[in-house]
Lab assay of single mutants.
Amino acid sequence: MQNSHSGVNQLGGVFVNGRPLPDSTRQKIVELAHSGARPCDISRILQVSNGCVSKILGRYYETGSIRPRAIGGSKPRVATPEVVSKIAQYKRECPSIFAWEIRDRLLSEGVCTNDNIPSVSSINRVLRNLASEKQQMGADGMYDKLRMLNGQTGSWGTRPGWYPGTSVPGQPTQDGCQQQEGGGENTNSISSNGEDSDEAQMRLQLKRKLQRNRTSFTQEQIEALEKEFERTHYPDVFARERLAAKIDLPEARIQVWFSNRRAKWRREEKLRNQRRQASNTPSHIPISSSFSTSVYQPIPQPTTPVSSFTSGSMLGRTDTALTNTYSALPPMPSFTMANNLPMQPPVPSQTSSYSCMLPTSPSVNGRSYDTYTPPHMQTHMNSQPMGTSGTTSTGLISPGVSVPVQVPGSEPDMSQYWPRLQ
């Protein structure tokens, strides 16, 4: 039975679970980093996980050691009161100082060594604690504590007292930064006198190289990059290397530039699409467009005044059976039934097929058609009795279509119309 579990990581490298990497692998990681390889490249070359490479390099940059820390136990506290007071002093002298600059000053002034120097995250935590204590304490208590930490007896009751030896409130920041720059020169002199001055200088240079600022491109470089971006948004590694040799930039910087440029292009394309949609959409909808001609068919113009009344309900007709019959029939052209047409008796099958359309009241044959006459024609229609054979009435077949029909004066039988409509 094995005491430890061995495995293979996602890159194909072998590791022992819970145990640190061998010293030979750690040394190779540092050597590759000094030669300029990126952590992701080191991870692929040595088949070590990216997190492990970053952790080893980060500890090497901070402490200069590649040895693993002790497994188990607690780390001794490195942010001692003396170190905290120095950090507060540096922050007062130059409020814009960075944590890694404070760390360098602690090393250069001999406050800490490589073994007990606090990390950048520890210094940031100390600065946050100082800021929170400043908010919790009152103004007087804060000034007393700062005077105690600074070891001075001057008056701290006013704002300019934060910067000793100065009279203009805006000047101390520059003086403090100048003092810090002077301390940086002392850093070089002190570290050069040490035993491991060369190694420390190499480590600091490598650290500065990794902690780079934003790349500033010249106009020629920007023009070359934009020209390549117009050709393709995704250049391959050969195109990037050719462009890197042409404009004297690292291939990694060119790759990052193209990634950022593609993101910018997507944002601009989104804005262009929004403007295009806004320009195509009308600002207001016309009133006429809300009524579609496919839904509402136009009603033909009436030929006679009587045809303006298109349904039985508008003429005072309360018989719903006839109203439904007229509205359900398709529109037909106007025609006239003459008196000489043969009077065919209704076929029983045809009569039964339209039995649902006729009223059940037996008085329908005896009703006159003056009910369908509009009010303004009552006088004219009353002067001509319906009993004469020459009287013409208008029957409504569908809305908007008038059918003048000659009705025999002897017997106005409704059943004569249905064979004609089939």
Results as ranks from 00 to 15, higher is better:
68 P>V: 03
16 V>K: 05
60 Y>V: 01
111 V>G: 12
18 G>P: 00
70 A>M: 15
111 V>I: 14
116 N>K: 04
20 P>F: 01
58 G>T: 05
137 M>Y: 09
2 Q>M: 09
60 Y>A: 03
66 I>T: 14
57 L>A: 00
144 D>H: 11
142 M>L: 13
122 S>Q: 02
47 Q>Y: 15
138 G>M: 13
18 G>E: 01
136 Q>P: 11
127 L>P: 02
124 N>D: 01
111 V>E: 08
75 K>E: 04
150 N>W: 15
146 L>N: 06
42 I>W: 02
52 C>Y: 02
58 G>D: 14
93 E>R: 12
105 R>N: 11
150 N>I: 15
94 C>A: 10
65 S>C: 15
53 V>I: 07
130 L>K: 07
49 S>A: 02
23 D>V: 09
124 N>V: 03
68 P>T: 03
39 P>E: 05
148 M>H: 04
136 Q>R: 10
89 Q>V: 12
105 R>T: 11
36 G>C: 06
83 V>G: 03
134 K>W: 14
147 R>K: 14
117 I>D: 14
88 A>I: 03
54 S>E: 00
99 A>N: 04
120 V>S: 04
7 G>E: 15
129 N>F: 06
149 L>F: 11
142 M>Y: 08
149 L>W: 10
44 R>V: 08
37 A>K: 06
93 E>I: 09
141 G>T: 12
146 L>E: 14
14 V>D: 05
5 H>F: 12
43 S>K: 02
51 G>C: 04
76 P>L: 05
94 C>K: 12
150 N>P: 13
126 V>S: 08
21 L>R: 02
34 H>S: 14
99 A>Q: 07
90 Y>R: 07
39 P>D: 05
84 V>H: 03
30 V>H: 02
118 P>Q: 03
113 T>Q: 12
13 G>H: 02
86 K>R: 08
127 L>D: 03
30 V>N: 01
96 S>D: 15
150 N>V: 05
117 I>S: 13
5 H>N: 11
108 S>R: 10
84 V>Q: 08
93 E>H: 10
81 P>N: 14
54 S>P: 05
23 D>Q: 07
81 P>W: 09
89 Q>S: 10
45 I>C: 13
83 V>S: 09
4 S>L: 11
25 T>K: 08
84 V>G: 04
109 E>A: 10
18 G>T: 03
2 Q>D: 10
17 N>S: 05
79 A>W: 01
148 M>K: 11
148 M>E: 09
26 R>S: 01
